[in-house]
Nucleic acid binder design. Structure first.
Length: 374
RNA sequence: GGAGGGGUAGCGAAGUGGCUAAACGCGGCUGACUGUAAAUCAGCUCCCAACGGGUUCGGCAGUUCGAAUCUGCCCCCCUCCA
């Protein structure tokens, strides 16, 4: 009895318009998922998320395990109740990304990962089974298998061994998983090696997960390599399950992922750069802290429908950033998230109308962003 | 009028004979940021034709091989007592 139902509604080339039904929530794909690592999309609350039309959001197993602890969230009645978020499903990342981002503070063994807590230095151990059990207690709608997000570049032997271990971990997590109101996704690794990507995808598909992720992209490789990684994986994933590329938020990355047939993606980029004063707009990237905006009383982006663009001027936002007022972080985060969500809403409509490639080209041509894609 | 304290780069503030174009903080300017140790991090911030040179530490005049640092005079500011 699966709690997640994916329906492929329409294809335009490889781009997919779909629908996910899960635990009473229904959402359309492709979708962009804001990241709320510590049970909060930094600076936004549920009302802001509703306003920008966010649905699925992320939480993080490693971070919530350390603080407040999965038991607290369980006692609260689960993550939805805990953070008062009911606008859509919640997906938890497994801790696999921390294997990458906290590389200096961890050790990998066959059994699992030993972390040296970034909070207090204590030694903590997480097995693939632990990751699943923690996610079950957190009560997310979609859980992820514990994987190793492989650094780039890594040599073939390292990647092969890592992929095989990630596959064993995936199986162990699957066997340990008990909640039937929680979906579980496997994560395809394999770095830039086509055969390892294919192998990893095929082995995971045999295990029959509820969805499949592509991990280990946008970890320092060039764009060409990044996009090829998608090509090495997507042909081997089933049409009737959602595909999720983890950790992409640049405009070109998203548009290309959709074109190739990815349904879901998340990224800290829009919220992080917002807190740093950077905005994605239909006129390209701008930094609100710059002096030229000090007396600019126009909106951030005249083509945007977010609350920030509807109600505030660049001059005011410039002031908030110079004064280090938290409202600036919130207003810019709202804008950047809405910008990406709207971009993907446009993509869904374009797929429906069989003009996705035109849509993509139009955006890539019109928006004055650079190689990085924002 | 008397006693004491002080004037350092845009601001605040170290430094009290050479290692000082002068710590540090703020402010300002650049850049970075992709499954969040990130409201963070990195660089620049006296002037110039600049891997070198030129002017600086209230002002002027000295002492010294060498002064933001010592001496004299002057200007300004603060506190206390009359």
């Amino acid at each position: 009895m699966k709690n997640l139902k994916y329906t492929l509604i329409h294809k335009d080339g490889n781009a997919r318009l779909g629908q996910i039904e899960i635990n009473g929530y229904t959402l359309e794909t492709p979708c962009f998922m804001p990241v709320g690592t510590q049970a909060t999309v930094k600076f936004l609350d549920y009302r802001d998320l509703k306003d920008i039309n966010a649905s699925l959001i992320l939480g993080n197993t490693y971070h919530l395990w350390l603080r407040p602890g999965e038991d607290v969230i369980d006692k609260a009645g689960g993550i939805h109740e805990f953070m008062h978020y009911h606008n859509g499903p919640i997906l938890t990342d497994s801790g696999g990304f921390q294997v990458f981002s906290l590389a200096k503070r961890r050790n990998i063994s066959e059994e699992g990962v030993t972390f040296k807590s970034h909070l207090d230095g204590s030694t903590l151990f997480m097995s693939p089974e632990d990751s699943i059990h923690i996610q079950e207690k957190i009560g997310s709608d979609i859980a992820m298998s514990l994987d190793e997000c492989i650094p780039y570049p890594s040599d073939y032997k390292y990647v092969k061994d890592s992929v095989e271990r990630t596959l064993r971990w995936a199986k162990r997590g699957l066997d340990a998983h008990t909640r039937d109101d929680q979906a579980l996704f496997g994560i395809v690794q394999g770095s830039k090696y086509p055969d390892l990507r294919k192998y990893c995808a095929e082995e995971l598909v045999k295990m029959d997960f509820d969805g499949y992720s592509i991990g280990g992209t946008s970890v320092g490789e060039d764009k060409e390599t990044h996009y090829k990684m998608l090509d090495y994986v997507l042909p081997y994933l089933p049409e009737d399950k959602p595909r999720y590329e983890m950790g992409i938020g640049a405009i070109n990355d998203i548009l290309i992922a959709i074109e190739k047939g990815v349904d879901m993606f998340d990224c800290v980029l829009p919220t992080r750069i917002a807190r740093h004063g950077t905005l994605m707009t239909s006129n390209g990237r701008i930094n609100i802290k710059k002096q030229i905006y000090k007396e600019d009383f126009s909106p951030l982006d005249e083509n945007c429908d977010c609350e920030t663009c509807k109600n505030y001027t660049k001059a005011y936002l410039n002031h908030l950033f110079r004064a280090n007022e938290g409202l600036g972080n919130r207003l810019l985060s709202i804008h950047n998230l809405r910008f990406l969500i709207k971009l993907v809403e446009g993509a869904r409509l374009a797929i429906k109308e069989n003009r996705y490639l035109e849509y993509k080209e139009e955006i890539l041509k019109k928006y004055n962003f650079d190689q990085r894609g924002f």
